[in-house]
Design a protein around this nucleic acid. Sequence first.
DNA 1: GCTAGCCGTTAACGCCCACTAACCTTCCCT
DNA 2: AGGGAAGGTTAGTGGGCGTTAACGGCTAGC
Lengths: 202, 202
Amino acid sequence: MTSDAAPAPARARREQILATAAELFAERGFHGVSVADLGAACGVSGPALYKHFASKDAVLAEMLVSISEHLLAGGEERVAAADGPADAVRALVDFHVAFALDQPALIVVQDRDWASLPAEARERVRVLQRAYVEVWAAQLRALDTGLGAEASRAAAHAAFGLVNSTPHSARASRERMRELLAAMACRALGVAPAPAQVEMSG
Amino acid sequence: MTSDAAPAPARARREQILATAAELFAERGFHGVSVADLGAACGVSGPALYKHFASKDAVLAEMLVSISEHLLAGGEERVAAADGPADAVRALVDFHVAFALDQPALIVVQDRDWASLPAEARERVRVLQRAYVEVWAAQLRALDTGLGAEASRAAAHAAFGLVNSTPHSARASRERMRELLAAMACRALGVAPAPAQVEMSG
DNA sequence: GCTAGCCGTTAACGCCCACTAACCTTCCCT
DNA sequence: AGGGAAGGTTAGTGGGCGTTAACGGCTAGC
């Protein structure tokens, strides 16, 4: 999809803009960050952004689409490598927890500024997110055959909400947060956590 | 704090504005709704809002402060009426689930547009929210004495995230959602759910 | 060494929006 | 009855923001 012929510095600037935008959007919201702000935070100023992106919207669009693609691909991969639904759910939890801990800004932007996307990108992200939810929901249904389609999706959303709470607390150490969130998510979903930690106090 | 001398229709309009603003802000975000939009949705147009609120910010401020006060007061009340920490956690879960199901728009606005608050209100909301988190965290620590202060707060945030996922799914019936979320939250927090439903399939 | 094109600059344009001003109606209160 | 507040209206203003225009230096290839 992306061309490899582009020179290195241009690509570096693009990614700098994307990374900086993620932080700023997470802090102040998409509408709370002007292109001047974004440029300044990248060490350039104002409309230099338009040498790399068609619009401010396009920055958000690329950011959210790539998150959604990453999550879906990663989720499918973990499920394919798993040994049965319980193992799959554990793997999904670990994967999502790691992502949330590594990229709290992206988590925040994804579920706050989705509505600010231009229509086309919004639809694309929606499709990808539904597919990701379905990856989880299918494993949950395999685990509990009494679970309906809607209930399994709601349970997946609930697990996302639990794990995505990271940016709101995020005070304990990364490893403790990882254990806490994974254990809570597994218990909420009705599977035993992967390591020895079964009790909340670890 | 609020004067009772104001005539009834004025108060009705104020509350109509607050309720309408909650819906619109939840859909499009605070910055995505203009005062003209908000007025139009209330059947009046544009600057009529300034007869009832000092500014657009003030609408958001009153909305979020009152949510936070409601949650804190309700939480303290449930804990006071509870019979031990496990019962308290169950009561807190039920309370929060009911609120999230009844007021999904407020949930969305609260954790998306907090940063758009004017400084004073933002601080006020922050203090109230920390107190509410502490109400939960104290019960969680009483339940599991190995739980540290930070971990207990993180667990409370995780539970909020789980329950507050309602607006993202919200397709199943209210009663099924209530049971599902309460059961998941209780399991995540390490207490048995209140009614007979212990398994996910209810 | 000249020419292209990438990447940046500053200036300016146009729109939208929060907010104010000025004015009007309705209705309660004495 | 009549005056004033409460709660509307439309017109206007000022500022901020996304975007475009016009221009300039650097680097690379013929």
